[in-house]
Amino acid sequence: MIKILIPDDISKLEKLETGDFVLLSGEVYTARDQVHKNLVNKINNNEKIPVNLKNKIIFYAGPAPIKKNAKSAAIGPTTSYRMDKYTPDMLECGVKGFIGKGKRSKRIVKLIKKYKAVYFITVGGIAAYLSTKIEKMEAIAYKNLGPEAIYRIKVKDFPCIVAIDSDGNDIFNR
């Protein structure tokens, strides 16, 4: 098990290998389909986006509503390939990692290698468990989208597996 603290250990992402089990701690940002669409539209129109994506990790997830006095809510990965059409722009903005579930297109594998990023997977169906790894969660942009807003979440020992490493090795094509 490899422990990674974000942003302090961001350079260590390039040293990870496909199949490594990782416990992520630090800041991660959620983004799903609608947020990606909004961000890419702003990027294509040369408008400022509401969050600096350089050296960030995007978790393809939308949390359940947070109950009063709770630190977090159930949160699980969504299918990543749906974000493939937006991923090139995210990588160009400096995103260094993605968390989701399922395989990615060959094009995205090549781009992850080009940008020396990493794609992590985590198990679907364990949203309640994953919520225990969240210390803080707050919507920071596109709040009108509810669970599809951008959330900044502070995670502690969040479990994932390296599915695509920065050399383009893909766990789904072994």
Rank of each mutant, 00 (worst) to 15 (best):
V28H: 00
K114M: 10
I49C: 08
E135Q: 13
A31G: 14
P65K: 11
I2W: 06
D84M: 00
K12I: 01
E148W: 02
A31L: 08
P65S: 04
T79C: 05
E92K: 15
P147I: 01
A74I: 06
P50E: 05
K68R: 12
C160R: 00
S80N: 03
Y81F: 12
K113Q: 13
N55Q: 05
K85M: 15
I10V: 13
P88H: 11
G100T: 10
N44H: 03
E47V: 07
D8Q: 15
I140M: 09
K114N: 14
D20T: 02
I121A: 08
L5T: 09
T78V: 08
F120G: 02
S105E: 04
I121G: 13
P88T: 09
K54D: 14
K103N: 15
N41K: 15
D84L: 04
G146N: 01
P7I: 11
P88D: 13
G146L: 05
I57D: 00
I49F: 06
A141V: 11
K101T: 07
L111K: 10
E27T: 13
K133H: 14
G100C: 06
I161G: 04
A73T: 09
L91C: 06
K143Q: 12
D8L: 11
A128C: 03
D170Q: 04
A139L: 02
N55E: 14
K67E: 14
D84E: 02
G94H: 07
I66A: 01
V118A: 05
N46W: 09
Y129R: 00
V118Q: 01
V162M: 09
I171F: 11
I161Q: 14
E92S: 07
V28G: 02
K15H: 14
D84Y: 06
F158T: 02
L13H: 05
G76T: 06
R32T: 07
P65N: 08
G62A: 12
K71S: 10
F59C: 04
I108T: 04
G102Q: 01
K3Y: 05
L39K: 02
L5E: 10
N52D: 15
M90S: 03
K37T: 14
L23P: 00
Y115H: 13
K133L: 07
G102A: 08
V22D: 03
K68S: 13
S166I: 05
K136V: 01
L5Y: 12
S11Y: 09
P7D: 02
N173G: 06
I121C: 12
